[in-house]
Design a protein around this nucleic acid. Structure first.
Length: 906
DNA sequence: CAGGTGCATGGTC
DNA sequence: GGACCATGCACCT
């Protein structure tokens, strides 16, 4: 527990205004302040606080003292310090926590009526909608919401409690408290250490017990209020809630809080995820069958019985962070109760303005609606702006689909997108519904954190980076790009994949780092992951992702280039981290991630950076054609030592570019990037228009939908480009042989050595932009409507005509189909049958005279594996491997085939 | 024709 | 197998 700088700690005087002592050198923390900091006390006050005697010591003359209805003990109810020292009785009066605890233990004899409390809260919240109020019970839907008089409708902001007791706030926010305490109490209780003080303070910790709110799920009117002590528990639990955002004074903090990580109820759940109380509450609502006598301790996990499925899915559990709550509550005295959250889908964030609400959440936290028209719902965003949405539902498969309509302005105002998380919470006093947002990155981290612990013991952290390329960007039907769908999809995919990954160590076979924003991460992590020595990975395909599966964990290693030397011996080339020279090493050597010449024990002559590089420029170029961005950086450095020679270039490169340059970042751009670009609104590139994985109708080969047409068109373009390149190279070869090429033309004719790495150079620009008709080398390219340009992206206006969201389908399938088609066409092309292989193996640009180190260049750990969503890779691979592979036309098998080829080449 | 609306469909859990 | 829900899409204005 570290001292939190801030107001509470700025002074050297004890925070207790009644004490003017100096704080000890290491101030002791007292109750938590609204700011999230802790009151820093002197030893004496801290001791009193920890002993639960603080109010007795300092507030004796203060107002707010009441008497426990059970034991008669005086309890101070009027300060932040004592906020958790008592519970409210719904019949009036208070009860000290000790008595409350007894009541809890005694079971359902309590007179607490959480339902009542709960309803009172809601009635507060939505009283303005009484006309269509959710107080109508009959036929009001599956949730028998009921209006009950608010017992305490004058909540007092907690920090200002003096004469008014804070529990009024609690009671008025009964449902919120339910949620809070459910979410908080159990984990809190489980944190014995954390509780210690609380126990002392309260003379014992309440056992988590009956926390369920019981309501009959049918008719709704006869909702049976379970008389249970849940309120007691709620409040008791609340008192353990260390988060001041909930208006709870907490004299301790969790380690998490101390780390600055959490500090909010939701986060407390993470280490041992507990469903929010909302969940349980809702569960009961949904079930409507909760036995009234059920006073069980729930650990928050889905119930093993059938009712468990009625629980909210963990993904809807609110996982507010301090920042979230702070954002919502600001510095107000409000008490915020997280209800649920949802990651915005593309549809949610789209222009259509309909936010699909999780059914259970909607029914649990929103007023019941009996008519599809629903009712207006006033929601305040985190900026304090109020919005009115229409909360309604559609009949759907004998069920309902709840939506909030009219959210577009709010979403736009909040600048959130698909993938971001919208949080719903309730603000007290007032019961105002508050909508908060969390950006995808944060959400992802949160989810990651949470789900990692929800995932059957399999950490998802690594998986979190497995950005689903299909989700990289997508466009909703309104044309808005759900570019943050990445986060959403990752989160979703993470769950799915995680369950499928099994126990074996796996390495995602993905090398199209460009598809992922985390390029460096991929390069450094993914790229450095290498199979254990003497292990041949089996390749498994999970959801289209290929994983190398090892019996042993992959190890970190330095990416190298595997090749075959002139003697047919398998070797690998490794680049020194210091001098960037490439050194020849045995193929079975596994290098550390940082490898330098000095470690070159296999070639003492070249165990120093001063030693000359064994590779010639041409050879090096031959090694570098795979346009592996990861390798390219350093390769570029190495290349600078030598003549700049064009590297191997082929359709694969173009294809890579075609994909990579999607929409904006063609080599023609000075901002060319090897990354898959961020897709902006309006982008209808092939990536963006992809539906989520597995979504959308299946497309036939004859399908003429926009997506299919786009794919086909792009493949046609690819083919044309390939032809053009082929002709270029042929012409260039010829011209070189004839030595007739003009000096100033040669560079132009040279294809980019490694376009991904070099696309910032003017060369590709020229190539892409050239194609003059008078250039004999361009003759063939002239057949391209794009004159040799990589057209896949350069004419976004063409793609604008596409209706990005109007069609969807399995892009995988589509691309496979297109690949099939392309390959079939390839086989009929006289120049195409071997073109790709030729392109990649004859090294026209780099100089055919260059000595080939090996045709099968494999960038060690940064495999140029096929991305399933980018058939160009499939084409590349297949075409460069075998006809059998070609005909497979399936990305997965293609990749596997590539592996086979790789093995062969090895 | 564009945008909105309500429902249907199909993937996922 | 059913519920949920994201999204497609027909219909309406």
């Amino acid at each position: 527990m570290t001292s939190t700088p801030g107001a509470a700690s700025s002074s050297k005087i004890c925070f207790n205004s009644d004490c003017k002592d100096l704080k000890s050198e290491i101030p002791r923390k007292g109750w938590r302040l609204r700011t999230g900091e802790f009151a820093e006390l002197c030893d004496r006050c801290a001791f009193a606080f920890e002993e639960g005697r603080f109010c007795d010591t300092f507030h004796l003359n203060a107002s707010g003292w009441r008497t426990c209805e059970s034991c008669g003990k005086r309890v101070h109810c009027g300060c932040i310090v004592s906020v958790h020292a008592f519970t409210l009785l719904d019949a009036g009066g208070i009860e000290c926590v000790a008595c409350a605890r007894k009541n809890v233990v005694m079971g359902s004899s309590s007179s607490w009526s959480p339902s009542l409390i709960f309803h009172s809260s809601l009635s507060e919240r939505f009283k303005e909608y009484s006309a269509k109020g959710w107080t109508q019970l009959a036929g009001s839907g599956p949730v028998p919401w009921r209006q009950a008089p608010s017992l305490f409708n004058s909540p007092v902001p907690q920090p200002e409690l003096h004469s008014r007791v804070p529990y009024e706030v609690d009671l008025s926010t009964g449902i919120d408290r339910l949620n809070v305490c459910d979410r908080l109490s159990t984990p809190s209780l489980e944190k014995k250490k954390v509780e210690d003080f609380s126990e002392r303070l309260m003379n014992g910790t309440l056992k988590p017990g009956t926390r369920d709110i019981h309501e009959k799920g049918n008719a709704g009117i006869n909702c049976e209020e379970q008389r249970n002590p849940c309120l007691t528990k709620f409040q008791s639990s609340l008192k353990e809630e260390p988060n001041p955002q909930f208006g709870l004074a907490v004299p301790y903090t969790s380690p998490d809080e101390a780390n600055g990580q959490n500090g909010v109820s939701g986060t407390h759940l993470r280490p041992n995820p507990q469903p929010p109380l909302a969940k349980q509450f809702h569960s009961n609502l949904q079930n409507g069958t909760d036995s009234s006598g059920e006073t069980q301790i729930r650990n928050g996990r889905p119930r093993p019985d059938g009712r468990g499925k009625n629980n909210l899915f963990p993904r809807y559990w609110p996982r507010f962070t301090d920042q979230d709550l702070q954002q919502i509550t600001g510095d107000s005295n409000s008490v915020i109760t997280p209800l649920f959250e949802k990651m915005l889908s593309a549809s949610d964030a789209g222009r259509i303005g309909r936010l699909v609400l999780p059914k259970k959440c909607a029914e649990a936290h929103f007023p019941p609606i009996s008519q599809p028209e629903g009712l207006p719902l006033k929601v305040q965003d985190s900026k304090g702006k109020e919005w009115i949405f229409q909360f309604r539902f559609w009949p759907n498969n004998n069920s309902r689909m709840y939506v909030l309509e009219g959210v577009t302005p709010c979403i736009q105002n909040m600048q959130v997108q698909a993938g971001d998380v919208v949080t719903f919470s309730r603000l007290e006093p007032g019961g105002k519904l508050v909508m908060g947002f969390r950006k995808a990155s944060t959400a992802s981290a949160s989810d990651q954190d949470n789900e990692a612990k929800n995932s059957n013991g399999v950490s998802m952290h690594g998986d979190a980076e497995m950005a689903d390329p299909t989700s990289w960007s997508k466009v909703d039907k309104s044309g808005y790009i759900a570019k943050e769908a990445l986060g959403a999809k990752v989160a979703v995919s993470r769950k799915r994949k995680n369950s499928m990954l099994g126990s074996k160590s796996k390495r995602l076979r993905i090398d199209n780092e460009d598809l992922i924003e985390l390029k460096l991460t991929w390069e450094e992590a993914q790229g450095l992951l290498r199979p254990p020595p003497n292990h041949v990975a089996s390749v498994v395909v999970i959801e289209g992702f290929e994983f190398e599966e090892y019996e042993d964990a992959p190890i970190l290693g330095k990416p190298t280039i595997f090749a075959t030397d002139n003697m047919g011996e398998k070797i690998q080339w490794a680049q020194c981290e210091d001098c960037f020279k490439w050194r020849r090493l045995p193929s079975n050597v596994l290098l550390p991630s940082k490898w330098t010449c000095s470690s070159n024990s296999w070639d003492p002559e070249r165990s120093s950076c001063s030693a000359i590089q064994e590779l010639t420029a041409e050879q090096l170029e031959n090694l570098l054609p795979q346009c592996n961005p990861a390798a390219s950086k350093k390769m570029k450095a190495a290349k600078q030592e030598t003549e700049n020679v064009d590297a191997l270039e082929g359709l694969d490169t173009l294809a890579n570019l075609a994909i990579l340059g999607e929409g904006e970042s063609l080599p023609t751009s000075s901002q060319a990037t090897t990354k898959h670009p961020r897709h902006r609104p309006g982008c209808s590139c092939i990536v963006c228009i992809q539906p989520p994985s597995g979504k959308g109708p299946k497309h036939k080969q004859t399908c003429t939908c926009n997506v299919c047409e786009t794919v086909k068109r792009r493949f046609r373009t690819l083919m044309m480009r390939r032809e053009k390149k082929q002709s270029q190279k042929e012409a260039e070869t010829t011209s070189k042989k004839q030595q007739t090429s003009l000096p100033d033309k040669v560079p132009d004719d040279d294809p980019p050595p490694c376009t991904n790495a070099e696309n910032s150079s003017p060369k590709p620009i020229k190539i892409a932009s050239e194609g003059s008709e008078d250039d004999p080398n361009r003759v063939k390219s002239s057949i391209s409507p794009f004159k040799g340009q990589i057209d896949l992206n350069i004419q976004p206006e063409r793609e604008e005509e596409l209706s990005p969201g109007s069609d969807s389908g399995s892009m995988m399938r589509l691309l496979q189909d297109a690949t099939d088609k392309y390959l079939r066409q390839q086989s009929t092309l006289t120049s195409g049958g071997n073109s790709i292989s030729e392109v990649s193996q004859t090294q026209p640009g780099g100089g055919p005279e260059g000595e080939k180190i090996g045709n099968s260049v494999n960038l060690g750990a940064s495999h140029q594996d096929i991305d399933r969503d980018h058939p160009v890779f499939s084409i590349k691979t297949s075409a460069s491997t075998s006809a059998t592979v070609k005909n497979s036309g399936k990305a997965k098998s293609l990749t596997i085939s590539k592996i086979q080829v790789r093995n062969i080449l090895y």
